[in-house]
Design a protein around this nucleic acid. Structure first.
Lengths: 183, 183
DNA sequence: ACAAGCATGTAACGTGTTACATGATTTT
DNA sequence: AAAATCATGTAACACGTTACATGCTTGT
C-alpha cells in the first residue's frame, strides 16, 4: 500500500526536509499514528526520487557535511492529493500484545495477573501525562481561523491519541476491579 | 519477538487444534488484537513442531482427508508460561492510516474532509454494533466463579475492543463538530 | 451435480527492525 | 578533549500479505 511513501510525501509537502529531519518528525510528531526508522526512510527517499515524486538539492552544513534537502515535485503533489482524496475501507484492528497476553493469562496466579495490569496501567498513565503536556504547549499555536490549518490537524490527532490512551487506562482499571472481585 | 508463536501456543494450550481451526479462531475470536492468515500459520506450525513445542497426530476426516491435530508439549507449555509471566515495556502506538490521512487533510476541500470523517464514522458504528452483538451472545457463557476462566478473559478483551471503538467514534464526532465550526 | 466449506501447503513480494558502518558538527 | 547530536547510508533478518496450487467432504 506504500503508506510510508505518502507519509513522507505529506511531510515534504508541508515543508522541504532532509532524511534526518523526517526521521525526527516520525519519532516525535507522528509517533502516535505512524513512525519509521532512518533505515527505512533513506531507501524510500531514494526510491521516491527515482520515481520523480521528490527532488533534492545539496545544502552544506558547516564546511564539508553535505545534506540533502528534499522537496516535492508537481507529480508528487498530484500523487499525494489523489491518495488523500481516496476513502478507504476500515483497517483491521491493530494488533496488541498486551491484550493477547491478557487473553491467555488465566493460567497464571491471580497476583501475577494483577501485576501485569498494574504495570501496564502505570506505563499508560505516564504516557498520557506526556501527551497532555504536549497538548498544553501545542494548544498555544492554535489560532482560530476559517481555514483548516496544519496546526488544527496536529491538534485533532493529538486529541485522538489522548482519548485513546485514556480509554485504555479505563479498561485496565475495570479489568483490575473485576479481577479483584473474582478472588 | 515471535508473537505468532505464542498466540498459537496459547490457543493450542487451551485445546488441541488443526491449522484450519487456528485460522478460524484468529479471524474470529482473536481478530480484535491478533490475527494471521493460514499462509503464516502452517509454516509456523511446522517450525514449532521442529522445535519440539507442539506435536500432532493425524486424524481422518471422512475416508481420505488427513488433518493434523496439534497439541502442546511440556516444553511448549513451559515456554508459553515463561512468556505469559514476562512483563513487557509499552509497545509503540499502533499505526493508523486514517489518522495519518487526517493529519495531512488540510490540503483538501472542507467537504471532502467531512466525507472522510463521515465514512469512517459509519464504518465504525457498524463495527461496534457487531462487537456488542457478540458480547450479548457471549455474556451468557460467563459463569461467575472464584477462578479466572478463559470465558472471563474473552469477556475482558471484548469489552476492551468495544471501549476502543466507542472512543474512536467519539473522536470522529468531535472532529466533525470542530471542522463544522471552522467553516 | 454443484456450491460451500474443510484442509494443507508454497512462492513471490512488500514491509519493518536491528545491527553494521562511517564521518562531521556542535555543545559542554 | 569528549560527548551529544547531526547526517547518510547498507545488510541481514523477521514478519506479513497476496496469490498460486491442490484436493476432499458435506449440505443443498
Amino acid at each position: 500500500m506504500r503508506t510510508l511513501k505518502y507519509a513522507i510525501l505529506g511531510l515534504i509537502n508541508r515543508e522541504a526536509m532532509t532524511g534526518y529531519d523526517l526521521s525526527k518528525v516520525f519519532n516525535k510528531d507522528l509517533v502516535n499514528f505512524w513512525y519509521a526508522n532512518h533505515s527505512q526512510i533513506y531507501p524510500e527517499l531514494k526510491k521516491l526520487t527515482a520515481e520523480g515524486l521528490i527532488t533534492y538539492e545539496i545544502v552544506l552544513q558547516g564546511e564539508k557535511l553535505e545534506k540533502k534537502l528534499y522537496s516535492i515535485t508537481d507529480i508528487g503533489q498530484q500523487d499525494l492529493f489523489a491518495w488523500l482524496a481516496t476513502i478507504d475501507p476500515l483497517e483491521p484492528t491493530p494488533k496488541d500484545i498486551f491484550r493477547l497476553k491478557a487473553f491467555f493469562m488465566e493460567s497464571l496466579p491471580a497476583q501475577t495477573i494483577l501485576d501485569h495490569f498494574e504495570s501496564q496501567l502505570s506505563q499508560r498513565l505516564e504516557k498520557v501525562a506526556k501527551l497532555e503536556n504536549t497538548m498544553s504547549t501545542q494548544a498555544c499555536n492554535l489560532k482560530k481561523s476559517s481555514k483548516i490549518s496544519p496546526e488544527f490537524c496536529d491538534y485533532l490527532v493529538l486529541k485522538g491519541a489522548i482519548m485513546r490512551e485514556k480509554t485504555y487506562i479505563s479498561w485496565l482499571k475495570e479489568c483490575i476491579a473485576e479481577i479483584g472481585e473474582s478472588s
